[in-house]
């Protein structure tokens, strides 16, 4: 969503972007002999370089000048390349990924609450709050917003547009790395993880509103809650279908998403 706003980049490899940083960490531990905390740092830096800088320079910049569609197809190809690359050069089997936080049970009103889940929620909320502050409360963030709204005018005003777009890609890489480190202890690290995550992320973003950060958060919560409630109280078999029904309904009746803004473009 960040990428779409600043550079009109639709990244269909976003799920694989979340899958990959966990393998950077595992590879740093396995081949580099690093401890887990050190490997996390290395994995984070490699994610910034590969999924931020390299992705922009090697895929987005050359393809975007040909239009959005070639870029979309390129990201689809990139998703396959990343998936098969991990399968070929690391492992086809699921890999255990150490938890950032030890799993202990807390009982709240008779319900067992996992401390691991609480940490994930806290980190996610903190990341979003930090991002919102950065975008709205700092000079660089406002320059990024200006770039997103009108790159030509931003350039005239002296904003380094290219650098702002690069920052967006780096922020995106940092967020996917964070998501990867949080989700992999639960889902296990596996080359196919991106398929599930990518689909859910797109549904959530479209349901909530593709052009609003708060829309994506609401969309994500809504899809997650509906998915789990359907599975727990109705049917496990149809759990994956229900969010798609929601997606269809939103596209039909509120195409900009629940919290999104309607946008007009000159064609």
């Amino acid at each position: 969503m960040l990428l779409w706003q600043t550079s009109q980049t639709i990244n269909f490899a976003q799920g694989e972007f979340v899958m990959l940083p966990a393998f950077f960490v595992l590879a740093a531990m396995k081949f580099g002999g690093l401890s887990f905390p050190l490997a996390l740092g290395v994995g984070f830096l490699v994610a910034l370089l590969v999924l931020g800088l390299l992705f922009k320079r090697a895929v987005v910049d050359p393809m975007l000048r040909h239009g959005v569609l070639p870029l979309v197809i390129s990201t689809l190809a990139l998703a396959i390349l990343m998936k098969e690359g991990v399968k070929e050069f690391y492992a086809a089997e699921a890999q255990a990924f150490p938890a950032l936080w030890k799993t202990t049970d807390l009982t709240v009103g008779g319900a067992a609450v996992s401390s691991q889940n609480l940490v994930i929620i806290a980190v996610a909320v903190a990341a979003v709050a930090l991002l919102q502050y950065f975008l709205g409360g700092t000079r660089t963030g406002r320059q990024m917003q200006a770039t997103a709204q009108n790159p030509a005018l931003a350039r005239i005003l002296g904003i380094p547009v290219e650098r702002m777009i690069l920052y967006t890609f780096l922020i995106n890489a940092a967020l996917v790395a964070l998501a990867s480190f949080l989700i992999s202890p639960i889902y296990l690290a596996k080359f196919t993880n991106g398929e599930t995550l990518g689909l859910v992320a797109f549904v959530a973003a479209i349901v909530g509103g593709f052009n609003q950060v708060r829309g994506a958060i609401v969309g994500g919560l809504l899809v997650g809650v509906i998915d789990n409630f359907v599975a727990a109280y109705w049917s496990s078999q149809y759990r994956a279908a229900i969010p798609l029904f929601l997606l269809i309904a939103v596209i039909l009746w509120r195409p900009q998403g629940l919290l999104g803004r309607a946008e007009e473009r000159t064609v």
Binding site: T192, N228, F229
Partner: peptide, 17 residues
């Protein structure tokens, strides 16, 4: 009697059941 899918990654709802 809870059925799950091959390759499923999220079992939160199934464990609730």
């Amino acid at each position: 009697d809870v059925s799950t899918e091959s390759g499923q990654v999220d079992f939160a709802a199934d464990i609730v059941k």
